[in-house]
């Protein structure tokens, strides 16, 4: 059943993004930035964790999850180390996504050339 709710929720997020893109003058950069902030806000009001628990892992896929993870690790750091911990722990749980993107992109650039 959770596979179904994952389908609906992730699909819905993409649906909203597409609607925003087609009805306003925003670029995809604007929309992804907005969605990261929305994800952090949903984490802040506690909705995101609830959705993750009820609706399956699929919700870790869209970019909103990035904001939620950043918020959660910052909060975790503050609880452990005080205010400085927000900066110490900020990228802990998103590190896998960011660093694998950077390193793998570099290696693919070494092997491939842009297609025109």
């Amino acid at each position: 059943m959770k596979i179904f709710s994952s389908f609906i929720l992730v699909g819905l997020i993409c649906f909203i993004a597409s609607l925003i893109y087609d009805t306003t003058k925003w670029t995809s950069g604007h929309i992804t930035s907005l969605f990261v902030v929305v994800g952090a806000f949903l984490g802040f009001i506690g909705v995101y964790d609830l959705l993750l628990k009820k609706c399956g892992y699929g919700l870790s896929l869209p970019i909103t999850s990035f904001g939620n993870l950043l918020y959660k690790s910052a909060l975790d750091g503050i609880e452990k180390y005080g205010l400085i911990g927000a900066f110490k722990n900020l990228y802990i749980s998103t590190s896998l996504g960011i660093s694998s993107t950077i390193v793998l992109s570099f290696f693919i650039t070494a092997f491939c050339n842009p297609k025109d």
Partner: peptide
């Protein structure tokens, strides 16, 4: 076109999401 684009996004995004859930599960 707006509706068509949004529906395509919905289907592809949903498909990726459910595959993600399945693999993680």
């Amino acid at each position: 076109n707006i509706l068509k684009n949004a529906l395509i996004s919905f289907l592809i995004g949903g498909l990726l999401g459910s595959i993600f859930h399945l693999l993680t599960y």
